[in-house]
């Protein structure tokens, strides 16, 4: 009973949040974005992507030019309201970092950078996945989830990511239906 009513109230809050925000922001979210602004943030996007997929024994997001991929998809393939949310998110991330640490994101320590990302991951996700879906459907994907998704997509479909961090099997020839996992087996890059 308790669990059920807390889900209910969470849903209610979610819906209320959606409606007040949508009334407030409806017009703003549908005005065209100055696309050049994404390039103004290119270095920050690259830095954030590197925090999500850092260099290890395989290249990181920066080396794979994931920032350029993210900007391409944001500019060419992203609904206007999500473009706004993304830019708002970047702007707020800069402000938040300054307020918290009194310096820019670039100057933060690794630990501080990860803490900032953690704040944004928590901020942009409900505890119930259904609310995330509802939220994404009506208001567009949140800043952090968009950033994370595009980073992962851009990295693992890049030449470096697919071939150095995953197993890229260009022409498999045969299908081997069941085989034991290899030593340090990486996931196949494509399906």
């Amino acid at each position: 009973m308790n669990r059920r009513s807390s889900i209910k109230s969470a849903i209610l809050l979610g819906i209320l949040g959606v409606s007040t925000l949508s009334i407030y922001k409806y017009r703003v979210l549908n005005i065209e974005v100055d696309l050049k602004r994404f390039y103004d943030y290119q270095k920050l996007i690259a830095e954030l992507a590197e925090c999500i997929i850092p260099k290890s024994d395989s290249p990181g997001a920066k080396e794979a030019n994931v920032d350029q991929y993210i900007i391409n998809v944001l500019i060419n393939c992203t609904p206007i309201k999500e473009q706004h949310k993304f830019l708002d998110g970047l702007e707020y991330l800069e402000t938040y970092t300054r307020d918290m640490y009194d310096k820019s994101f670039f100057k933060c320590t690794e630990k501080e950078k990860l803490d900032v990302l953690q704040y944004f991951e928590d901020r942009d996700n409900y505890n119930f996945s259904i609310l995330n879906k509802i939220n994404a459907k009506f208001l567009g994907q949140s800043f952090f989830n968009k950033l994370k998704r595009l980073t992962i997509e851009g990295y693992f479909s890049s030449n470096l990511g697919a071939t150095k961090c995953l197993s890229y099997d260009y022409v498999p020839v045969n299908y081997i239906a069941c085989k034991p996992l290899g030593l340090n087996q990486k996931s196949w890059a494509t399906r």
Partner: peptide
């Protein structure tokens, strides 16, 4: 089946 995988894209 955690130790099993496949190869190729059927």
């Amino acid at each position: 089946f955690n130790n099993m995988y496949y190869k190729g894209r059927r």
